[in-house]
Simulated assay, not measured.
Amino acid sequence: MRVGEGVARGLLAVLVLLVLAGCSRLSFVRPDTSRGEYTRTAPEVQLRGDRKGALALQVALSEGQEALRAGDLDTAAKLARQALADNDGSPAAHTLAALVADRRGESRAAGAHYRRAVELAPTRAGMHNNYGTWLCGNGRERESLEWFETAAGVPGYGNAAGALANAGECAQRAGMQDEAARYLERALQRDPASPVALAAMAEREYRAGNHMRARAFVQRRLDAAPPEPATLLLASQIETALGDVRAAERYVRQLREEFPGSAPDSVMGKGD
């Protein structure tokens, strides 16, 4: 596993899907990070129409999310279709359909649903973040940046730091190093404990040969959120570069214990 690939997988942490239940709270779904999924969020959507139709949509979205969480993609796909049939104008229904398509490897369909969700909720920052995420994950890194910028610029958006961190990672992928640094610095100004931004900064400093700074960022990343395989791999490589073999081995052991099968046979010193 290359560090760049691993960090890209681990950076994009938590997917938020709106479930229209009760008072329309947001609930959280853990994405399959092995597919390199990004931080995504979905906004609240006002239910319109008769109560029976609204309830049907609510149930389809709630059960669809549960099926997605359980890995039952056939059921999730069926419920996404049902949600769209109940209300094709629901951004949340299109988001659910997009998530299912993403997990099934149907990238074009996922992108169409994410774009439709933006069109239906153009003032909702989360929808712009979602679509930017899809663009970046499908080789359109430069194009994704304006969508993350829009998301981050919406007043009161609770995940502005995540959108900026996503922009930093995507700019870095596109070879836009100066822009990436600016995005990541802005993300950390908004949220000094942003896992996405901290992991990306750790990788940047490691690749630049600034190993002490890389260590500081990766330690902050590990303090900010539960570890991911890419983070532990990077931490072991940073410690190897600093000559602390014991610390490097400790991270490798943690990687193998917490994520069996994630660690290559030899991970230390494999920075490229």
Rank of each mutant, 00 (worst) to 15 (best):
M1Y: 01
G6E: 00
L11I: 12
V14H: 03
G22N: 10
G22V: 13
C23G: 14
S24I: 08
R25V: 10
L26N: 13
S27F: 14
P43G: 06
V45F: 00
L47H: 09
G49H: 11
A56M: 12
A60Y: 07
E63G: 03
Q65I: 11
E66G: 00
A67P: 04
L68I: 06
R69K: 12
A70C: 12
G71N: 12
L73S: 12
D74H: 02
D74P: 10
A76M: 13
K78Q: 13
K78V: 14
L79M: 09
L84W: 05
A85P: 08
D88W: 14
A93T: 03
V100A: 05
V100S: 05
V100I: 12
R104A: 13
E106Q: 11
A110G: 03
R115T: 11
R115N: 13
A117I: 05
A121K: 07
P122F: 02
T123E: 12
A125H: 01
N129K: 01
N138P: 02
S144Y: 07
T150M: 12
A151Q: 00
A152D: 05
V154M: 02
P155R: 05
P155G: 04
G162N: 15
N166F: 09
C170L: 02
A171C: 07
G175C: 13
E179T: 07
A180M: 11
L188W: 08
R190Y: 08
A193C: 13
M201R: 01
A202R: 02
E205H: 15
A208W: 02
A208E: 09
N210T: 12
A214V: 02
R215D: 01
A216L: 11
F217W: 06
V218K: 02
V218Q: 04
Q219V: 10
E228L: 03
E228H: 07
P229K: 09
P229Y: 06
A230H: 07
L232H: 08
A235P: 06
Q237T: 01
E239K: 06
G243R: 14
D244W: 11
A248F: 10
E249D: 13
R250E: 15
Y251A: 01
R253K: 12
E257N: 14
E258K: 15
A263E: 03
K270H: 13
G271C: 13
